[in-house]
């Protein structure tokens, strides 16, 4: 749609601007303020310069958290994207069963995140949880609050349970938009199932899959509540991801300076990924218009 140039449209955007300025810009400036200052309490601050940034960049604790975070996000993408596509391909295309599948699959997406954590915390216990009890019954020495590997298994399984449906729903929306004529043409060419997938379905799903990958990356990159409820970041710091570590630093130990410097770098990474996301989305919109 061709839009009209009209700077008066700013008046329509103004309420959003004021609201978001209050809830985003002011807090963010506070963070910037803390990141370059130090305090001995009593609200007396003095200039610290880039000291906190240097400290954070060389801190092994934060390197560890970043490493775990990248490993977690990578693992999540490696499992959820292929699984989500597979599920989308298996879903009924229309009718009653399609609605049933959509509703049941979306259920985990609507559960409060701490309840998701609670569900899996209970499920993994050997005394009262189905999963833990079954594993213990099979002779596995299952203990996710002691064994780091088990803690990772339960956190990753929980995230797969929680979010794979999102990838599947997006991929399904992409599949639904493919005109029937494409499949008929493939049938005439006697294309195999694999070739139909590789040369028709996958290219047509490219747009939604990019969105799915970026969303899953972003959301897993700032995951906090679910692992916090299940493992509390433990055992030791085995499942302390970036957000968990940051909250521990800022609200637990009240290390304002390092926490603020950490926040800013965290936010810059997010900004970078958001930019990629935005570019992809606007490009897709442009393709759509053509």
């Amino acid at each position: 749609m061709d839009k009209v140039q009209n700077n008066k449209a700013w008046f329509l955007v103004l309420p959003v601007l004021v609201l978001v300025a209050f809830s985003a810009v002011i807090p963010l400036m506070t963070v910037v303020n803390y990141s370059v200052q130090d305090t001995f309490g009593n609200n007396v601050f003095f200039w610290e310069g880039l000291g906190w940034f240097k400290e954070v960049l060389t801190s092994s604790r934060i390197h560890g958290a970043l490493g775990r975070q990248l490993a977690f996000s990578g693992l999540i993408l490696a499992i959820q994207i292929p699984l989500g596509i597979a599920i989308a391909l298996c879903m009924p295309k229309r009718g009653f069963w399609a609605s049933v599948c959509l509703v049941l699959m979306a259920l985990p997406l609507l559960i409060p995140w701490n309840v998701v954590g609670t569900i899996w915390q209970i499920l993994g216990r050997t005394d009262i949880g189905l999963l833990g009890h079954t594993l213990a019954g099979l002779g596995v020495d299952w203990n996710y609050s002691r064994n780091p590997v088990h803690a990772w298994i339960i956190v990753v399984t929980m995230d797969v349970w929680h979010w794979t449906s999102l990838v599947a729903l997006l991929a399904y929306a992409g599949l639904q938009s493919i005109p029937q004529a494409y499949y008929q043409a493939a049938k005439i060419d006697q294309a195999s199932r694999w070739k139909v997938f590789r040369y028709i379905e996958l290219p047509k799903m490219r747009g939604v899959l990019l969105i799915a990958i970026l969303l899953r990356f972003m959301d897993s990159f700032m995951i906090y509540t679910e692992p916090f409820v299940v493992t509390g970041g433990g055992p030791g710091s085995a499942t302390s991801f970036l957000s968990i570590d940051l909250v521990k630093m800022a609200l637990g130990q009240f290390d304002l300076g390092p926490a603020a410097a950490f926040s800013i770098m965290y936010f810059l990474v997010i900004l970078l990924v958001s930019w990629v996301f935005y570019t992809v989305m606007t490009n897709l919109d442009r393709v759509e218009v053509k």
Binding site: V20, V31, S243, L246, V247, A250, S263, Y266
Partner: peptide, 14 residues
């Protein structure tokens, strides 16, 4: 958009 993507953990303290 960047606000939608901002980690709540960054904003909790401010």
């Amino acid at each position: 958009l960047t606000n939608r993507m901002a980690p709540p953990a960054v904003f909790a303290l401010p």
